[in-house]
Design a protein around this nucleic acid. Sequence first.
RNA 1: GAGCCGUUAGCUCAGUUGGCAGAGCACUUGACUUUUAAUCAAGGUGUCAUGGGUCCGAAUCCCAUACGGCUCACCA
Length: 493
Amino acid sequence: MTSEIDNITQQRTEKMQHFRDRGIDPYPHRYHRTHTISQAIAVLAQQESNTEMKSDSMSVAGRIMSNRNMGKSTFMDIKDDSGKMQLYFKRDTLGEETYGCLKDLDIGDIIGVNGEVFRTHSGEPTLRVSGYTLLSKSLRPLPEKWHGLVDVEKRYRQRYLDLISNDEIKNIFRTRSKIISVLRCFMDNKGFLEVETPVLQPSAGGAMAKPFITHHNSLNRDFYLRIATELYLKRIIIGGFDKVYEIGRIFRNEGIDFKHNPEFTMMEVYEAYSDYEKMMDLVEQMVLYICQETTGGTTVNYGDDIIDFTPPWARLYLREEILKYSGIDFNEYPDAASLRKQMSTFGIPVDTSKGRGKLIDELTSKFVEPHLIKPTFLLDYPIELSPLAKRKPGNDQLVERFEAFAGGMEIANSFTELNDPLDQRARFLQQQKAREMGDEEAELPDEDFLIAMEHGMPPTGGLGVGIDRLVMLITNQHSLREIILFPQLKTQE
RNA sequence: GAGCCGUUAGCUCAGUUGGCAGAGCACUUGACUUUUAAUCAAGGUGUCAUGGGUCCGAAUCCCAUACGGCUCACCA
């Protein structure tokens, strides 16, 4: 790009050529290391506590992170996935020629070294190098050693540099991986079957969101990237697998911000003969278990707050909480027009294309959600917002649905699943009307799904958990981009 | 999609009222056999995001564009 980087790359390319000139492959096929760096340091600690143990030669490998040349001796730091260790190269040990070739090594190169571990005067665990092997020559300079990589855009676009130079970043992604593995373990132990359903769907259903559209060439038709796994998982329940879950990538064609990435990871769970009450218990147990297995405790720090996941979580009614925080009782406004009018007298700007459900949703996210720091269930949602959920007995306007919140974010959504095919058909029709009124996110009718349900679906509890947001909570990160390795950014140029 | 802020060396950052483009790290050369943000001496390094404009003169002022951040809108 500029002459400077060309310059550095050219110098390093020349150094690489020096190795070739000496008959050394700068990119050898393999290297046998006997220990990781943390294992090597552990061996040193063993030797120190047991003086009869003799120090054996061992080999480790890693990336050179710093280089302190002192003339006839040289110190380097190398880093592998397990940690960091100092290397001590001495001319008297290596011989003049081998020692002299150190000048062709650079920060960023990956090397293998063998020797014995010892501790320097200042207590630093160090490997006294008796031989080294270049494993990969680096042609570009690393970010600055002290400040690391700070530029947020570069951190996301060149995440590998972020991982190399900012150690704490790796821990976030280790925790993310652990959370998913612990979650899987939890579900498996509860007897749930992990299944996979199509990402490419002829019609995008199961949630209210705009889909991505793609094209299948040989079928010559468009497909949608899934916005939810719901309708396929329910078909599986109908098929007789009583407890299923899927952890999968979901795609929604919407704006990007600290809480939203166009692709994100969600777990959906369906259990026959369960309902939303039992799903609340499941969520409480699940999140507590994940927290304990990943942090060792029942609480996490999230910003200035401490969040305790110990059950039971607060179970509050949506209507009462909206009333409490906004002063509006949506029961008094049975249609969109009257609710909209009431909201505007409260000075809340309202989009006239929104139906009653969307208005209630807006009241929730604007007035209630920010207060839900402690783990909380909000119960009983308006029917307009939930075309796949079963009505609340005794109240035709509400469904048996909850959303779980923590840290001011929604982390789970669940309902007692609608299994009455005639009601389901009517709800789809209602959604179609909303769509004709201009609601682009209304649920699309899915005839194939209706046929499935007409064969008989057991009473079922369903649950969706936003894995990314759960990871944000556990790792105390306040942007999705910090917990997704490659967050979506605009392409440059 | 709207508003505000940002973009200067490979990295981290200064840059005064519009008057020669700067530092540290990194890099090159030299000294140094337990250093550790090693130290010491010397050296090279720029499309000041991009494109226009104002001006004798622009990193600096104005306009547009790109990308990013924050706030809002939409959403989980």
